[in-house]
Write a protein that binds this DNA or RNA. Structure first.
Length: 455
RNA sequence: GCCGCGGUAGUAUAGCCAGGCCUAGUAUGCGGGCCUGUCGAGCCCGUGACCCGGGUUCAAAUCCCGGCCGCGGCGCCA
């Protein structure tokens, strides 16, 4: 798109434009001066283009003097300054992309101070802490930008698939009166003099919406004030939530595995430029993604020598080992696998029960629930939900929650709530295998964690 | 919250265990110089740092104590 400041983007400068006078704008990626020539590499969000400034050999003295000044001016530009450049496109095999712009004029729109907080041109790697502290500038680095590009492509793939299935994208309130689930710590806010909280999940609202829009999804932030200081936790993360009327957990697992498939395929197709920069290939996902029951998983973990009680949730070392065993036996799809039928006790109150089973010599109440893991990392979890009020109240009481404080939610179960099921997925966690990043913060524009509130 | 490791120029690192040879090395950056095709340009000159406080010692970047900060692991969770 042509704007006041530029007629072309860096990537659009091609040999076919030979001889055309163009105006472009962007950042000073680098300047190299070789004798009387100055090479300016200009960068925008599409890439880089070299602009060459030189004194023409066969020109009059006045022109020569003008260009001599220009070369000097270009050579003195500080890296990351914002400039607008005018010049003529020239096909030249000596130029990095076989084409360059012979510069005729430079206007500095914004001068960058020196030194920079980190090396944008990327000769010296910075630590993640340095990068996040200087995130606006870190994101100018192609590697950093590539990750956010892939996040965007992933979100696009999720949306397009769910729209195809007739899901409605919804937006639920993010300021709420009470917690939806036990456990996770809520982030308090002041709300017109009342105590309120930031939503830790759209769970209850998306469930209520299945009684009208039926198939709904949301991609939005969620907040958890947990004491979780790891590469996989954020105080504010992007949650992909799906909820479906007249469906059970097997139905929504199918939706989920197709979402994963669509994301990996779409990222591979449309994101090759960014994957190449990151030197990464997303996992090859074939459907169906293998399912393993909690019982089977528990038995594998137990047989690997872990001291674990029947009905206990799995810890990270246990999940690492389980994933290792399953991968060795080819029982994952590109590292993805489902663990289904969890003990009801370790799942939230709205999870539908499934009957009893003997595990490790103990009789346990199971539930119609699942986790989707990529190796040891929990990417998503979901379940068939309870759609009867009495059962919900019972489950709340069992978990020490007071049904009265959920009356605003429960009362609508008296007026025709369909059977439904759904899941929630951490978008940044999904990006760990998709973009090959070691830390979910890198898939976040400006991450919020226990220690970071700015930038 | 617990455990482990760490904090040296703008960035990334060497030095620390075995205190003195550190006037703290290197890369990159930055300032200047040479060079009319660089493309991680090259060469020359210059520039800039031991997290904070206390202690041990003739002597501390180095050893000890406390604090602050960071990274990783665990727990908890998406």
């Amino acid at each position: 798109m042509k704007t006041k400041y530029r007629e072309f983007l860096a990537i659009e400068i091609t040999p076919e434009l030979e001889g055309k006078k163009v105006r472009i704008a962007g950042w000073v990626h680098s300047v190299r001066r070789v004798g009387k020539i100055a090479f300016l590499v200009l960068r925008d969000f599409t890439g880089t283009i070299q602009v060459t400034f030189r004194v023409p050999r066969d020109a009059d003295d006045e022109t020569k003097a003008k260009f001599k000044e220009l070369v000097k001016k270009v050579a003195s530009l500080s890296p990351e300054s914002v400039v607008m450049v005018e010049g003529v496109v020239r096909k030249d095999p000596r130029a990095p992309r076989g084409v360059e712009i012979v510069g005729e004029n430079v206007e500095v729109l914004s001068e960058a101070k020196s030194p920079l907080p980190l090396d944008v041109a990327g000769k010296v790697d910075a630590h993640i802490d340095t990068r996040l502290a200087a995130r606006p500038i870190d994101l100018r680095r192609p590697e950093s930008q590539a990750v956010l590009r892939l996040v965007s492509l992933a979100a696009k793939a999720i949306r397009s698939y769910l729209y195809e299935l007739n899901f409605t994208e919804v937006f639920t309130p993010k300021i709420i009166a009470s917690g939806t689930e036990g456990g996770a710590q809520l982030v308090p806010v002041f709300y017109f003099g009342k105590d309120a909280f930031l939503a830790q999940s759209p769970q209850l609202y998306k469930e209520l919406l299945t009684s009208s829009l039926e198939y709904v999804f949301e991609i939005a932030p969620a907040w958890r004030h947990e004491e979780s200081d790891t590469p996989y936790h954020l105080a504010e993360f992007i949650s992909v939530d799906v909820e479906m009327a007249f469906a059970d957990y097997n139905d929504v697992m199918k939706v989920l595995e197709n979402v994963i498939k669509r994301v990996t395929d779409n990222v591979r197709n449309e994101g090759s430029t960014w994957l190449k920069i990151l030197n990464h290939e997303p996992p090859e996902v074939t459907l169906p993604i293998p399912r393993i029951s909690y019982k089977e998983a528990w038995e594998i973990i137990k047989s690997e020598g872990f001291d674990i009680e029947p009905g206990e949730d799995f810890g990270t070392p246990e999940l690492r080992k389980l994933a290792e065993v399953l991968e060795k036996e080819g029982k994952t799809s590109g590292g993805f696998f489902f663990i289904v039928d969890w003990p009801a006790d370790v799942r939230p109150f709205y999870t539908k029960r499934k009957g009893k089973e003997i595990i490790g010599g103990r009789e346990l109440d199971l539930s119609e629930s699942f986790d989707l893991n990529w190796r040891h990392l929990e990417i998503s979890s979901g379940s068939t939900r309870i759609h009867r009020r009495e059962e919900l109240e019972k489950e709340m009481s069992l978990r020490g929650l007071n049904p009265e404080s959920f009356e605003w939610y429960l009362k609508w179960y008296d007026y025709g709530m369909p059977p439904h099921a759904g899941w929630g997925m951490g978008l940044q966690r999904l990006m760990v295998p998709i973009a090959g990043i070691p830390n979910v913060r890198l898939a976040t524009t400006f991450p919020r964690d226990m220690k970071r509130l700015v930038p």
